[in-house]
Design a protein around this nucleic acid. Structure first.
Lengths: 241, 241
DNA sequence: TTTTATAGTTGATATTTATCAATTGGTGGA
DNA sequence: TCCACCAATTGATAAATATCAACTATAAAA
């Protein structure tokens, strides 16, 4: 499994970002566009750089843009009342953020924040609307993307609702290893608080479970670096609840 | 507010179901279809009747059809291991079920079960795919539908994760009153177990919260009938967590 | 009507998880 | 170097929620 290069920029991104960025193995929703349509898409895009910790998109602001992440790691956060918050998922290099509800209320339903340095480009939602009505394949790809996020959220909902803490932590570790970093060990670049916020539990509880896993020999932990030793055990814990 | 007529069939449904069913106030994703396309859609549809309790769609089976609910009330259930289950939402007369992931893996990610008698029609997914590639407006409408479900699931996830039980029960009652039955009092037609399954808590806990609300004079309960007396109080409880 | 099954309700108790407080350990600056 | 600060960790305790068992009400069946 090829590790994902979080900090490394795509060599093809220099010029036609969002067009050529995504054709190195990972398929992109932009693959189906004609050169003309591609031109339309990238013509007025704006490239923006964010430092770690900066807010890329803010919940409850109007969703006028779609964002392509070219480099770096960001977290998607649902901000509740008080200091309640839930990290819904991570987005890494080569991801597209259509925002929460660009097709409904044009309001962002979550905040996106840079975990590492992030390079991305902002594209007008209008362009996306235009492409949807021009190119059916593109609409299809967007539907797929939407659908996938829907299913992920469903699994998240069921997991967080029905599993005890060890199961949720196991799920998180498997997610980080197999869907985000694609390597082992991996450097989460996330604090304990942030990891806890991905499981809907308190930092203290998260640390305790991690400690259990450590002393059972399932994982080796060194600060933000986690090495999964016994993935089968994690799978088992995940299933058992 | 016009109450929703759960058991009452749409007078226009006799013949061209899914075409004319949805044009009585509620907009339909089929409104944008041309007569030709409508013809394609309804030509080979099959009308199916379900008795209360019957399974309309089963989780983990292949998603070859889209279902339009013409009459009745159904519940969408995520079935976990053991007897764990979570009712994700209800669907009433005039709803469309695109299934969990028709655009991804063609697998259903949840079960749909009739609560009352349900009349619905089954339409081949292929027709939907064909319409998506023919009619951009239709693709757009599907994107909207998908988006809306996404946001609802997000709110659900955040609510269930971050609120204490009274907040979740308050949310459920407001959902039932304002989004499903559109009247007050309303007959849920659901058992306490089912109501509890919508909040991710046990039946006993659900009953206790309901009792609290009852003795505070916020609601009046008579079996499956619930009368919301003080909606502001519910809103407050919902926000407080 | 009586019986029987089942949903709903209540109380006592156990488990899970959060909260609060204290301690450790590292890191950048004075 | 030492201090100040903040993340990480640990322990003690409290709060939220689930589990288990009993009991009641209700409705269907004999």
């Amino acid at each position: 499994m090829e590790p994902r290069r979080i900090e490394e920029s795509c060599s093809r991104c220099k010029d036609r970002c969002c067009a050529r960025c995504f054709d190195d193995g990972e398929e992109s929703i932009f693959d189906c566009l004609t050169p003309d349509e591609l031109e339309l898409l990238v013509k007025e895009k704006r490239h923006v750089h964010f430092k770690a910790g900066e807010t890329i998109l803010k919940q409850n602001t109007s969703a006028s843009h779609v964002v392509c992440v070219k480099r770096g790691l960001a977290k998607i956060i649902s901000e509740g009342d008080g200091d309640k918050r839930l990290i819904l998922r991570l987005v890494a290099t080569h991801s597209i953020l259509t925002g929460g509800g660009i097709f409904i209320d044009e309001i962002r339903h979550f905040t996106v924040q840079a975990v590492t340095e992030v390079d991305c480009c902002f594209i007008d939602s209008d362009k996306i609307f235009e492409l949807v009505s021009r190119n059916n394949q593109f609409a299809f790809e967007l539907l797929k993307l939407n659908n996938r996020q829907n299913i992920q959220m469903l699994n998240n909902l069921v997991g967080i609702t029905q599993k005890y803490m060890p199961g949720r932590v196991a799920d998180l570790l498997l997610y980080l290893k197999n869907e985000i970093f694609l390597c082992n060990p991996f450097d989460t670049r996330l604090s304990r608080q942030e990891l806890a916020d991905m499981t809907g539990m308190t930092m203290e509880s998260f640390i305790r479970i991690l400690k259990e896993f450590k002393s059972s020999g399932i994982i080796v932990v060194d600060g933000p670096n986690i090495h999964v030793i016994d993935e089968d055990a994690l799978q088992l814990i995940s299933r058992k609840g």
